[in-house]
Design a binder for these strands. Structure first.
Lengths: 154, 154
DNA sequence: TTATAAAACTTTAAGCTTGAAATAATTGCG
DNA sequence: CGCAATTATTTCAAGCTTAAAGTTTTATAA
């Protein structure tokens, strides 16, 4: 996914775009992962889950998390397990539907996330520093319309 | 990495961009992974390694692969191991420097890759279909300059 | 009711991924 | 030369990831 086009033709320009997109996101992702590890001894998947929960103080179902984060159900199970065992998150069995459980940040998890998120936002600002605010807005617009055109997820 | 900004401020626009970038690449990546599995019973990492080797008929060192694909050394070892055991790739010990080995596609690997790459290019064209050729060129340019400004890898 | 299907989740097996430690070969320098 | 540092690679442990199969609970409908 990271090599160059192997031919010329109609799809070439879009293939180039895809390769650039992928290389850019991998490079940034690698840098963020490294800093999360070094500075906060955590991982990107944990950060993702906590970020989602931080936006939903009322809690989220496992399936909400899985859908929102674009990862599989089983995947979320493992990450939440570990967050629970670290005291950052709780799984609350529900009376209404006993198949499901509400996942929420604990007090500690919320505090912890706020600190990490602040650093994270600065890192992203730094790593994308060469993109002007205006360019960022335009790029975001292009990517947004692309996704929402392609399929209905959010 | 996939949730929205948690605050307003100067870095907000770039954080939005990063989230869009990540969601776009994850969505496309997931779709490509699924099709590679279904249609060719292979994986993205295998495809990446084969794509790199296809561009270098003379072969690549393990460290070349690792650098080019932006993944760790140990990672490449495992993927190449599996490709070797499937007869798609060879590791040739070198006389000059016996620490290293040249990795090459076999005849079969080369044929196999050519077929997969053709399908792959069509898929990408389809998945990025809502982006015009012209827009694709502009986006690519932005992403390219961003990366080369940020650091010296290629 | 009461089977049967559907939904929410967990478990499992296989593979991917990293960072760190271990091996082995080469290079450089006193 | 001889040995310390460097380089190329593999091994390892832990965690991430998916698809598929399994479990439990809820909904449907004959």
């Amino acid at each position: 996914m990271v090599a160059g086009p192997t031919s010329t033709g109609p799809g070439k320009e879009r293939l180039r775009l895809w390769i650039r997109l992928l290389r850019a996101s991998r490079t940034i992702e690698a840098e963020l992962r490294e800093r999360l590890k070094k500075e906060f001894d955590t991982t990107l998947p944990r950060f993702d889950v906590m970020a989602a929960l931080y936006r939903s103080p009322e809690g989220m179902l496992m399936s909400d998390l899985s859908r929102f984060l674009l990862v599989s159900n089983g995947n979320v199970t493992g990450i939440v397990d570990r967050l629970v065992s670290e005291g950052l998150v709780t799984r609350a069995r529900r009376n209404g539907d006993r198949r499901t459980s509400m996942v929420r940040l604990t007090e500690e998890g919320s505090k912890s996330f706020a600190a990490i998120a602040a650093a994270h936002e600065n890192w992203v600002g730094e790593l994308l520093g060469t993109v002007s605010e205006d360019e960022a807005r335009r790029l975001t617009g292009m990517l947004k319309s692309f996704r929402s055109n392609w399929e209905g997820r959010e």
